[in-house]
């Protein structure tokens, strides 16, 4: 009987890798590659519309408020306020499951919604019990290592 041999290990499917678009060293698979380049430089940024003034998040190539392509990159204010938080313990996305349980949060930076953003983030260094709505938080850039030699960047929140 003919035998077909399958590989011993199967590569991490890209669909389970939330940062599959991010290659700070290139090639750039996304029009918003500046977002990832800026993260690599230590800055959490987004796009702001030069025509209507709306700060968008996530960054995009087109302002969804007025359809202008006239956008600029702006740094998200470093200090913000904790809006809501809970704990991720079960059913954690595979790529970050080794860190569970951890606090997941929504924080507001700048003057939301007029001129600011409301974004999600993980808080690694505080327990749920240590937090309350309205706490001051800041974002900080983190390095994602692997698989292999890959080095990419993301952000998390920290209570001030």
């Amino acid at each position: 009987m003919r035998t077909i041999k399958l590989p011993d290990t199967i590569k991490l499917p890209t669909l389970l890798d939330p940062w599959d678009q991010q290659e700070p060293s290139g090639p750039d698979a996304t029009g918003i590659y500046n977002f990832y380049r800026n993260l690599a430089e230590g800055d959490l940024t987004t796009t702001k519309c030069k025509d209507c003034g709306k700060m968008n998040f996530p960054p995009t190539m087109l302002c969804s408020n007025c359809l202008s392509n006239n956008l600029e990159w702006v740094k998200i204010p470093e200090e913000g306020e904790l809006y809501a938080f809970s704990v991720m313990a079960l059913g954690v996305p595979l790529i970050i499951d080794t860190y569970a349980p951890f606090v997941v949060a929504i924080a507001r930076f700048g003057d939301y919604p007029e001129n600011g953003v409301q974004i999600s983030g993980i808080i690694f260094d505080s327990k749920y019990e240590e937090l309350k709505i309205g706490d001051k938080v800041k974002w900080e850039v983190i390095e994602i290592q692997g698989p292999g030699e890959k080095k990419r960047y993301w952000y998390c929140f920290r209570k001030i």
Binding site: P18, W19, Q21, L90, G91, V92, P93, I96, V104, S120
Partner: peptide, 13 residues
């Protein structure tokens, strides 16, 4: 998935 996904945003939290 690219922006809220990496922060563990499934339905329960």
């Amino acid at each position: 998935r690219e922006f809220d996904g990496p922060n563990g945003f499934t339905a329960p939290p």
